[in-house]
Amino acid sequence: MLDIVIEARKAAITPGMEVRRILPFRLRRMVGPFIFMDHAGPVAIAPENISSMDVLPHPHIGLSTVSYLFGGQVMHRDSLGVEQIIRPGEVNWMTAGSGIAHSERFEDPSILAGGALEMIQTWVALPEKAEESAPSFNNYKPEELPVFTDKGVWMRLIAGNAFGLKGNVHIHSPLFYLHVVLEKDARFGLPQEHSERGIYIVKGSIEVSGTTYHAGQMLIFSKGVDPILMAKEPTTLMLLGGEPLGERFIWWNFVSSRKERIEQAKADWKEGRIILPPSDNHEYVPLPEDKSRPAGSPSPQALS
């Protein structure tokens, strides 16, 4: 049975960067350990305005951010001193753990040619034993990621395990994350070994049990339900899920199993105890005004 269909909502993370937000959703906060998902692009903006898309230094705790590009490039800088150009097909996995700050800047105007900039960013909540782990950042090249092809099907395993493939990306709990491209009329299924599974339609459309679903929708299925997906046209999908971790609280860019840890993170950022990226420390995103929003509610100002 199809548990729920989530419609992506528009959200602005900077004046020049509007995204489609999929997770969290009021009726479905997480899919396995995945607690956040944004789809940005294809971006249409004048090259002279490219700096308006920059995401200034901002903090995270208790999660891993996963940046995956279909086109363009992004410059990542973080508290560890990492400077990494993120390119299409790579996996950029930053574990915030006890606390990290990073920026994402768009420094090459050529990436806007033909609306080429397009990316997905997800957040993976950490199990309790890893929530206060040391921050880290890893970049994995496309050739390090398993790829499977069949008639009308191309699939890259971004992280975890699925369909007998096992990824090289270091993860903290059982999960899977896949980039799938289907030709028209191609059929595809879902990995059966995971408790919670979601399909996000990046572009194109699929038919499931006689109903057609379109770009911008996420379909979520429970374990034991094994639908057949048929591409109605050339289609790109992101499949994700895994084992649930239990309740998590999210406020702005902070995720934790404990409300009081969210409050501590607020104070740490406000008082400058989370270090800014050494090469990008002249400006930052200030702590948003709380407005009495409960720690368990997603802030509309959440940043990637």
Score class of each variant (00 low, 15 high):
residue 1 M to P: 01
residue 3 D to A: 14
residue 6 I to A: 06
residue 6 I to S: 08
residue 6 I to M: 07
residue 7 E to D: 15
residue 8 A to I: 14
residue 9 R to M: 13
residue 10 K to I: 10
residue 13 I to K: 05
residue 16 G to H: 12
residue 19 V to C: 06
residue 22 I to N: 05
residue 24 P to R: 01
residue 25 F to K: 03
residue 27 L to V: 04
residue 28 R to I: 03
residue 30 M to Y: 07
residue 32 G to P: 02
residue 34 F to H: 02
residue 35 I to T: 00
residue 35 I to A: 02
residue 39 H to Q: 11
residue 39 H to W: 09
residue 41 G to M: 04
residue 44 A to C: 09
residue 45 I to F: 05
residue 50 I to P: 03
residue 51 S to K: 03
residue 57 P to V: 04
residue 63 L to M: 10
residue 66 V to F: 10
residue 67 S to M: 10
residue 70 F to W: 09
residue 71 G to K: 06
residue 77 R to H: 10
residue 79 S to V: 11
residue 80 L to G: 00
residue 83 E to Q: 05
residue 87 R to I: 11
residue 89 G to I: 08
residue 93 W to V: 01
residue 93 W to K: 01
residue 96 A to E: 03
residue 100 I to Y: 00
residue 102 H to T: 05
residue 104 E to K: 01
residue 110 S to T: 13
residue 112 L to D: 04
residue 118 E to K: 02
residue 118 E to I: 13
residue 119 M to A: 06
residue 123 W to P: 01
residue 123 W to S: 06
residue 123 W to F: 08
residue 123 W to I: 09
residue 126 L to C: 03
residue 127 P to A: 06
residue 127 P to D: 08
residue 132 E to I: 15
residue 134 A to V: 15
residue 135 P to D: 13
residue 136 S to W: 14
residue 138 N to M: 15
residue 139 N to K: 14
residue 140 Y to L: 13
residue 140 Y to N: 15
residue 140 Y to W: 03
residue 140 Y to F: 08
residue 141 K to T: 10
residue 146 P to C: 10
residue 147 V to G: 08
residue 153 V to H: 00
residue 153 V to C: 12
residue 153 V to L: 09
residue 157 L to V: 11
residue 158 I to W: 01
residue 158 I to C: 04
residue 159 A to C: 06
residue 160 G to R: 01
residue 162 A to Y: 07
residue 164 G to C: 05
residue 165 L to H: 09
residue 166 K to S: 07
residue 171 I to H: 07
residue 172 H to Q: 11
residue 175 L to I: 09
residue 175 L to W: 03
residue 180 V to F: 04
residue 180 V to A: 05
residue 184 K to V: 08
residue 192 Q to H: 12
residue 194 H to S: 07
residue 195 S to G: 09
residue 195 S to W: 03
residue 197 R to F: 04
residue 199 I to L: 13
residue 202 V to L: 11
residue 202 V to R: 02
residue 208 V to M: 14
residue 209 S to K: 10
residue 213 Y to E: 14
residue 213 Y to T: 13
residue 214 H to K: 06
residue 218 M to V: 06
residue 227 P to C: 02
residue 228 I to H: 04
residue 232 K to R: 07
residue 233 E to F: 11
residue 234 P to E: 15
residue 235 T to W: 08
residue 240 L to W: 06
residue 240 L to P: 03
residue 241 G to W: 15
residue 242 G to K: 05
residue 242 G to T: 08
residue 245 L to K: 03
residue 248 R to D: 13
residue 250 I to L: 13
residue 254 F to M: 08
residue 254 F to I: 07
residue 257 S to N: 11
residue 261 R to E: 12
residue 266 K to H: 07
residue 269 W to Q: 04
residue 270 K to Q: 14
residue 275 I to Q: 04
residue 276 L to M: 10
residue 282 H to Y: 12
residue 284 Y to P: 00
residue 285 V to Q: 05
residue 289 E to I: 15
residue 289 E to G: 10
residue 292 S to G: 04
residue 293 R to H: 12
residue 296 G to H: 08
residue 297 S to K: 14
residue 297 S to G: 02
residue 297 S to C: 14
residue 299 S to D: 15
residue 300 P to V: 14
residue 301 Q to K: 15
residue 303 L to Y: 07
residue 304 S to V: 15
residue 304 S to I: 12
